[in-house]
């Protein structure tokens, strides 16, 4: 028993970064995914700064549906004669900005509520969990669609807030169960006995022990949230029509002519979505192994 304990202690002293390094070096797919995601993110966010607004706003019917490679349009043009490549970069930036901020926000809310429920337990826990369970039963997608329709004036920020308000519940259960297991451990009892305030125990003692799990969960959720953003804007309930997103580019595929004869208007955005989500999931799986060393490949 004591031997096992010291082993655990020495293991947890290994820093997160060195564990991550070890796991990534053992998983080639994860490593490639990390490189792909980081370089694509940098490229998209930097390139988007240099694209003049007129490139993706001004409509020029004369240049409609140019095939890739003609008159300087590397990926061709869409139904409005706009350059596909410029649109793709700006759309990816918008989609990723929304999904990332939405994921971070829901994680923070999940952390606050989950920590509270798991730490205090009893009546607080019961109340929070019944409410969360009830809200999870609601058809989120449909509610988002309705709320977006009711709120007539909205922009990216309001959209993120609507998403968050209707789907913060998913993280709560996860954080709560992690907190419950931690709360039973001696170090939490020691912290309580030494007179630390609940807030201090939660944030200084418990939270650092959950962080690697939460990072892994956040990464995996990001993939799902990219899907949600893409889906809603595909249906026309995402960003306002003037703002491009990967979903609005995909929307062009609803026209059978575009789908079969003008692959360049929708295929690039579909590929970008696939690339991002698959890469993010494989990064998330490596991070999960970092958090839970029992699954380690190293």
């Amino acid at each position: 028993m004591t031997e096992e304990k010291t082993q655990n202690d020495s293991k947890s002293r290994v820093s997160f970064l060195s564990k991550a390094k070890r796991e990534f070096s053992k998983d080639k797919v994860g490593l490639i995914s990390l490189i792909v995601v980081v370089s694509l993110l940098l490229f998209i966010f930097i390139a988007a700064i240099f694209i003049p607004t007129k490139d993706f706003v001004n409509v020029n019917i004369m240049d409609q549906f140019l095939t890739p490679g003609t008159s300087g349009h590397i990926l061709g043009t869409d139904d409005g004669g706009r350059d596909e490549l410029a649109m793709l970069i700006v759309a990816s930036r918008n989609s990723l900005f929304i999904s990332i901020s939405f994921t971070v926000l829901t994680t923070i809310i999940g952390l606050i509520i989950g920590l509270t429920a798991g730490y205090f337990g009893g009546g607080v826990d019961w109340g929070i969990m019944r409410l969360t369970e009830f809200l999870q039963l609601l058809p989120t997608m449909m509610l988002v669609m309705v709320v977006v329709t009711i709120v007539s004036e909205y922009n990216a920020v309001t959209l993120i807030l609507i998403f968050t308000a209707l789907s913060w519940m998913s993280g709560v259960r996860f954080v709560r169960s992690l907190t419950l297991t931690q709360s039973r451990l001696d170090y939490v009892k020691a912290s309580k006995l030494s007179g630390a305030s609940p807030l201090r125990t939660m944030l200084v003692e418990i939270l650092p022990n959950l962080s690697s799990f939460i990072l892994a969960d956040l990464t995996l959720n990001l993939a799902g949230n990219i899907g949600m953003e893409v889906g809603l804007s595909y249906l026309g309930f995402g960003l306002p029509a003037s703002t491009h997103s990967l979903g609005t580019l995909l929307q062009l595929a609803t026209d059978p002519n575009n789908m079969t004869d003008r692959l360049w208007v929708w295929l690039p955005s579909a590929i970008v979505i696939l690339l991002f989500t698959i890469a993010i999931v494989s990064i998330g799986q490596v991070l999960r192994r970092v958090a839970d060393q029992r699954q380690s490949l190293a």
Binding site: L220, G224, G227, V230, G231, A253, A270, T277, I278
Partner: peptide
Amino acid sequence: NSITYGVPALVIFLFVLF
């Protein structure tokens, strides 16, 4: 299963339909 978990279904629907 990890791929189908991460990839948005609607993109696959479009490919399948195509």
